[in-house]
Nucleic acid binder design. Structure first.
Length: 799
RNA sequence: GCGGGCGUGGCGGAAUUGGCAGACGCGCCAGACUUAGGAUCUGGUGUUUUCCACGUGCAGGUUCAAGUCCUGUCGCCCGCACCA
């Protein structure tokens, strides 16, 4: 039966909207399901097939859960603050508000065209002042609790975008937005004290159902290590040099120390150091290197020895030279290390280059050749000699250090505090007032939202100051505490702010008293299933878990963790097998696919391509297979006659319902679709199907290809929508045939087949098998007979 | 270097977790229908000369039986990366 897919799809989309089919109910006795997908950044380019794949997984799960009687919250919104919009507003001489609204409208139309079952009544926009009012509220809570602070620090600065970036946004020394090389710059910036939650973020992972690689990446990102801080007296200056080490037990093997070029001790000891000029020159040289150069060229160690002062080993009083070298980073630990070249590869390399002694303290390797980093018996270490276990020797050394007051156990994290500001216009204004008398004062809650001023000119300043700094009406204000003249903070929040709590707002999007009603939170939270890209596992997910844990501590939310389960979809690659990109010209536009084949085909194909979690290339020809499949389903309308069951299809139908039901929950969408294809192949072979059976098929196909299923459902004469029909049940007993074909092997090779009744006893099965194999086993000695019920019979023979 | 993952036909990919490798789809071949076919339908399609034999990156091993488990090895992808 031919049908006009574009007209049919539009018809059902309108019907769903008119009948409020996908709207979540707030007061419901039904079990709830909160399915969350990462809301898009509404770029001018419009939707990408990657968006469709990212949403299709939970789209299918959500549609199925609704049919199974769940009250489903499956929302969508727009993460609309950000640099790309601001940059194109500057380029086209318009306002980011105008562009954002246009882009949101474009995305909305495109999403609706694909037939996603989002609850459009709960849509949020992070740039809406009714939304960012609450983002500002959370910032103020963080500030009042000492978790938002200003500090002068070396920051990652992008000279092209003119913004300070967090470590997460400048990985590999490249700006995450424009890919320029970033430079280190000293600046007074805002930080959020995420490190205070490092342990909670780590521990929380034990109680959530995340993909193993997601957990692993977060664990690595937090990067917890345990060890000790040790204080070294400095000879020739009134200084104590504090270091961090994970192997305090190797303290007797220390032959030099290294401090980072930016280490403050250098300046403090300037008058005691005899080669200070040389050290300054080296520091300048290092500052010129980008982070990229510093890490990529890591094989060749550089450094300069400090003359005039040296360290003292606190255990034995030995004098130890101190070097400045850029392989030690100011940003980790204390910016200073004790070097044990015998047992650390980097120290070993450095010692060889500078001709420094190497003292073995752990037996097991050949330190003449390379550093030995394995376990072994401690030597040359006085009271530690004879220890063979790393754990024990570290424990003993820490006890000793603490006893003598020269050091203590300590913990370090790779994760640093979150650089939380941008010097750009299109972001949430930070609601802080700088008062000469009162210091930094929070904007009173009742004055929120602190709105972005509506201005024509919002280009960033050359010196890296925010465009807001050039607007006197915004900057000048009265101090909320003392009432005297004061100035507003002009930095805005980074892109990640709005997305750090957005899922909460879906629960109560219009509340103007609090970010969401506690009763509603109690019903809906946590998010039952969150799906998104692997690229957001370390930034967005860690940031939002941090905010959520903070809000939990403040009593504003009721769960410790926001997301109960997290999965990730794989990329859709271009037809050439490469990552899709405009420059490569291999981008597939979902709109064109919908025009050509319809939304149902697009949805079905994207989920049929392969394992949902794996990357797979787009194929212009493979998609036709899905088109044919759906056409063949449509053609069944003409064949379907009568009610009840078709004898030849009974088992197949029950098997199919079981397979699709289980596969959807396992995200095995490709095999679910494959089994439906196989089923209709069987139907055509059998040559008949009842209306009841076709009704079952379209109900389980509905989450994938909802429009065509609605159409068939109504053609079959059903009242009501297929999308709200009951999910079919299967009878386990009817999923198996009462006879099974069993392969018969000799010495593990298939030599025949027998039809046996289900669960046929072993000896009977073997007897049957022998009949089939009579010729083959004649004259041979049977060594062993194996029969696995309903699966295989293997006769082992010798000639 | 560290962490995670992967390697199966011409292609995308299946395989109930140790039990008939290649489901399903694409492509291809042949045929049917047709004025026409980049439409539809039917049959075929791992390699090899039908039988035999050989086949899941490579080399071993365990087992009645290995894509699946073990040892070694090669290659690819992703994340982090001088983290002390």
């Amino acid at each position: 039966m031919k049908y006009d897919f574009l007209a049919v799809e539009k018809k059902w989309q309108d019907k769903w909207e008119a009948e409020h089919v996908f709207e979540a109910q707030d007061n419901s006795d039904k079990p709830k399901f909160f399915g969350l997908v990462e809301f898009p950044y509404p770029s001018g380019a419009g939707m990408h097939v990657g968006h469709i794949k990212a949403y299709s997984g939970l789209e299918v799960v959500s549609r199925k859960r609704r049919m199974q009687g769940y009250n489903v919250l499956f929302p969508i919104g727009f993460d609309a603050f950000g640099l790309p919009t601001e940059n194109s507003a500057i380029k086209f001489n318009t306002h980011p508000r105008i562009l954002t609204d246009a882009n949101i409208e474009k995305f909305t139309n495109q999403l609706k065209r694909v037939g996603f079952s989002f609850d459009w009544t709960r849509t949020i926009d992070t740039t809406d002042e009714k939304y960012y009012r609450w983002t500002q509220h959370i910032f103020l809570e963080l500030f009042k609790n000492g978790l938002a602070y200003r500090d002068t620090a070396l920051v990652n600065y992008c000279p092209h975008c003119k913004v300070v970036l967090s470590n997460e946004d400048s990985q590999g020394g490249k700006c995450d937005i424009c890919h320029s090389d970033i430079v280190q710059k000293s600046k007074d910036v805002w930080y959020l004290r995420i490190t205070k939650y490092a342990d909670k973020l780590l521990e929380g992972l034990e109680n959530v159902d995340y993909l193993p690689q997601v957990k692993q990446q977060q664990v690595n990102w937090i990067g917890k290590s345990t060890g000790a801080f040790v204080n070294f007296k400095v000879k020739g200056a009134d200084e104590t040099l504090r270091i961090y080490t994970t192997r305090p037990d190797t303290l007797f093997g220390v032959t030099f120390m290294v401090i980072a070029p930016e280490h403050p001790m250098l300046a403090r000891c300037a008058d005691k150091i005899t080669n200070y000029a040389e050290l300054e020159a080296y520091r300048e040289e290092c500052a010129k290197k980008t982070e990229f150069q510093r890490t990529q060229l890591n094989k060749d160690k550089t450094g300069v020895k400090i003359e005039g002062i040296c360290g003292i080993n606190p255990l034995n009083g030995k004098e130890i030279p101190i070097y400045v070298a850029d392989y030690v980073m100011m940003g980790y630990g204390t910016g200073a290390i004790m070097a044990v070249p015998a047992h650390d590869e980097r120290d070993y390399e450095f010692a060889n280059k500078f001709g420094i002694d190497i003292i073995e303290v752990i037996k097991g390797g050949d330190i003449a050749k390379e550093a030995y980093t394995g376990d072994g018996e401690m030597v040359n270490s006085e009271f530690l000699n004879g220890f063979t276990n790393k754990k024990d020797s570290i424990k003993r050394m820490i006890e000793y250090l603490e006893e003598k007051g020269i050091g203590e156990e300590g913990v370090q994290y790779k994760m640093k505090d979150w650089a939380f500001n941008r010097q750009r216009y299109w972001g949430e204004p930070i609601p802080i007032v700088h008062c000469q008398h009162c210091g930094m004062v929070p904007v009173p809650e009742e004055e929120l939202p602190l709105r972005l001023p509506d201005v024509k000119n919002f280009e960033p300043g050359e010196g890296g100051e925010s465009p807001l700094a050039k607007i006197p009406e915004f900057v000048n204000c009265k101090c909320p505490v003392c009432g005297k003249d004061a100035k507003r903070e002009t930095d805005t929040m980074p892109q990640w702010a709005g997305s750090s709590w957005y899922f909460l707002r879906y629960i109560d999007p219009n509340n103007d008293k609090c970010l969401a009603d506690p009763e509603k939170l109690k019903y809906w939270m946590p998010v039952d299933w969150y799906n998104g890209g692997m690229e957001h596992v370390t930034r967005h997910m860690i940031y939002s878990r941090f905010w959520h844990k903070f809000l939990y501590d403040m009593g504003e939310v009721n769960t410790e963790e926001p997301y109960a389960k997290r999965t990730a979809q794989g990329l859709i690659l271009g037809p050439d097998g490469e990552k899709m990109s405009k420059s490569r010209g291999n981008v597939i536009d979902p709109n064109e696919v919908v025009d050509q084949y319809g939304a149902d085909v697009l949805r079905t194909y994207i989920l049929f391509m392969g394992d949902y979690g794996a990357a797979a290339p787009w194929s212009e020809s493979s998609i036709k297979g899905c088109k044919r499949f759906l056409d063949r389903v449509m053609d069944l309308v003409d064949i379907a006659k009568g009610n009840g069951v078709t004898e030849a299809l009974v088992t197949k139908t029950h098997k199919l319902v079981k397979k699709v039901t289980l596969d959807i929950d396992d995200m095995k969408f490709n095999t679910a679709i494959a089994s439906m294809m196989a089923y209709i192949n069987d139907v055509y072979e059998v040559g008949s199907i009842t209306k009841d059976e076709l009704g079952i098929l379209v109900r389980i196909l509905c989450p994938f290809a909802p429009h065509i299923c609605e159409e068939i459902w109504s053609l079959l004469g059903n009242n009501g929508l297929c999308s709200t029909a009951e999910w079919p049940e299967y009878d386990e007993a009817k999923t198996v045939d009462n006879t099974v074909e069993v392969a018969v092997q000799i010495n593990g090779k298939v030599r025949g087949r027998v039809m046996l009744p289900l669960n046929c006893p072993k000896d009977e099965a073997i007897a049957e098998a022998k009949k089939v194999l009579a010729e083959a086993i004649e004259g041979k000695t049977i060594v062993k007979e194996i029969a696995v019920p309903n699966k295989i019979i293997n006769i082992v023979v010798k000639p």
